[in-house]
Amino acid sequence: MKLWNKKSFYKNIRSLHRDLGYLFIGLTLIYAVSGILLVLKKNEQDPSYREIVMERNVKINLSADELKSCWDDFKDVPKLTHIIPAGKVYNIYVKGGIGEYDPYNGKIKLTTYKKIPVYKFVNDIHYNSGKRFSSIAMIYAIVLLFFAFSGAVMVKGKKGFKKRGVWLMILGFIIPLLMYFYA
C-alpha cells in the first residue's frame, strides 16, 4: 500500500497550500506594506520617522553657556543635551534630533525625528532589526518556496505547470533580469 496515492497527494498539497496561505496572510501584508514604504522612501530617509524642522531666532554672538541658559525660554523645543562649538557655528544636540546655532545671525535650526509607530513596526520586521525576526523570516522564506512548488503542481492539464506554467515561470525570471541589466 502506498503512503500517498496520486489523488490524495494533490488533495493534501491543496489543503496545505490553502491553510498555510491563510496562516501567512498577516506576515505577507506586513512585508508587502513595508516593501512599498521602502520603495517610496525619499533621499534614503527612513520612512519610520517623520522629520520636523524648527527655526528660531535668538540674540547674536551668544556663547554656548548663554545659549544653554536661554534654551529654557523656548516652550516647544526638545530638551537640550549638548552644545559643541564647530568652527563658525555651534552644533546643538537635542533629544531626538540635531541642529545648529549661527552666532553671526542668531538663527537656530533644529531637525528632530518623530517615530511613526505603524511604519516603525513593519520596517523593523522587514529590516530584521535586532535580529529578532530571523526565525520568522526563515520560516516565511521556506513557506514561500513551498507555495511556489505546490502552486506549480496543483493545477493539471492544459493550464497546468507543464503546459502553461513553465513559460510563465521563465518569464518571471526574465523580467527581473532584463530590468537589472537594462533599466
Rank of each mutant, 00 (worst) to 15 (best):
F146Q: 02
L38T: 03
K88D: 14
R50I: 12
W4R: 04
D102W: 09
L110D: 00
R14N: 11
I139S: 11
R164K: 15
V77A: 05
I30G: 03
L144F: 14
I60C: 03
L23K: 01
V166M: 09
G26D: 11
V143I: 14
I136S: 08
K131F: 12
A32P: 03
K107T: 13
I142R: 07
P78W: 04
L62G: 06
N105H: 14
L110I: 07
S48R: 04
M169T: 14
S135F: 13
I36N: 02
V143E: 03
I52R: 09
S48F: 01
L29F: 13
K107F: 12
G21R: 04
E44W: 08
K79D: 10
N123H: 09
I139V: 15
I52Q: 10
F9Q: 11
N91A: 07
I116E: 03
K11N: 10
N91D: 11
K42H: 13
L38N: 07
S8D: 10
I125G: 02
S8Y: 08
Y182T: 02
F9Y: 11
L16S: 11
S63Y: 08
S48P: 03
K41R: 15
Y140E: 02
S150R: 05
A64N: 06
K114C: 08
K120P: 00
S150A: 15
D65V: 08
M138Q: 13
K79T: 11
G151L: 06
K11A: 09
F74Y: 14
G26I: 14
K159D: 06
V155G: 01
L38M: 14
L171K: 07
L144Q: 07
G172M: 07
V166Q: 08
